Amino acid sequence: MGDSPRSWHLLTGEYPPQPGGVSDYTRLVAQALAREGQEVHVWTPGEPGTFEEHGVTVHRAPGLFLPLGLRWLSRELNRCRAPRRLLLQYVPHAFGMKAMNVPFCTWFASRRQDERWVFFHEIVYPWSLSARPRHQVLAGVTRVMARLAGGAADRAFVSIPSWAEHLPSPIRQRAEWRPVPSTLPTSVPAQALATVRAALGTGPWLGHFGTYGSALRAPLEAALVPLLDKDSKRQVLLLGRGSQPFAEEVGTRHPGLRSRLHSRDSLAPEELVAHLAAMDLLVQPYPDGVSTRRTTAMAGLALGLPLVTQTGHLTEPLWKNSGAVALADGSTPRALIDTAERLLSRPEELAALGARAAQVYRERFALERTVETLLRPSP
């Protein structure tokens, strides 16, 4: 008889109903593994309790990754069936202690009785010589944490290839690039789509999906305002948390466009994708460029939507090579606008771009590809 299969133990700083991309991603992966017949546990901070959800056992405890919580976590893990595989969803700020939780990473490195895997969603705080001293300390400490967790890992995954540069050798050479899939439903019932389109009315409709952080607001406004000015029939729909105040701010600065700026701030996932799918073109600028950790871009690709964006220092070569999105030639709003105008004037090219997006998503990014990788033996 062969060895018994390992039980999976996903360690994450957030899990639904807590909002967040890592929260949604962890639940998707946990439930997908459970559907494959795996024994799956999730360990996450929160109100104390244990419950079953779609074949996954979820364990919550307050301060789970703080020193006192780690004692409880060690005891409870040791009560679970061996052999065990820990799959850490690594985001420094999710572990508490103001993103400097060295004790947790030390604890993880010490669990030699378990197989230790790490998925690095984010890895270090950026370092700059001109940064404030506390930010320089944070940058240094997050690098120590990454080396502790990565150095102890039996297998490591990175959401973008450049994260591997911060890992110690030899795990750096063995780190596997695993793009993050869409954390939203990847299909929309025809009736739901028809209902949204009827409610929205005629377009063309330009969409944006995001969280409207400070670094994005100015370039997004700089792209959308000229696109609306060019054609009075165009409408913009802003989706995601923070979309309503952003729409109000832009409308205040450009009162003539206010009636064509629409927002849906907090839609349920099914409603959100129905509104996304109704868009003619997604306009998705990213300050550091499009990359495979951008779940907002993945949501559009999964639905087969044409998407215009731009490259940056975190952009992987596949975006240019695959043709899954329209890449603006340069990082300026003008480049994004020109690319969007070209697509809007060529309906056949717009449709072909959407079809290519859906194909590339299925082949490279879908949740099924992630599960295949996790269940495949280490390379």
Rank of each mutant, 00 (worst) to 15 (best):
L281F: 12
L282W: 10
V283D: 07
Q284C: 13
Q284W: 06
P287C: 09
D288N: 13
G289N: 04
V290H: 02
S291P: 03
A297F: 11
M298T: 02
A299L: 09
A299K: 04
A299F: 04
G300K: 06
L301Y: 00
L303V: 07
L303M: 10
L305V: 06
P306A: 07
L307F: 01
T311L: 10
T311A: 14
G312M: 02
L314T: 12
L314M: 09
L318N: 05
W319L: 09
K320H: 15
N321A: 14
N321F: 10
S322I: 13
V325E: 00
L327H: 04
L327W: 05
A328L: 11
G330L: 12
G330M: 08
S331R: 12
T332Y: 01
T332H: 01
R334E: 15
L336F: 11
D338C: 11
T339P: 01
T339C: 13
E341F: 04
E341R: 13
L343H: 11
L343C: 05
L343A: 10
L344R: 00
S345V: 00
R346F: 01
E348G: 01
E348C: 07
E349A: 15
A351V: 08
A352T: 10
A352M: 14
A352C: 11
G354N: 06
R356M: 06
A357K: 01
A358K: 15
V360M: 13
V360I: 15
Y361W: 13
R362M: 03
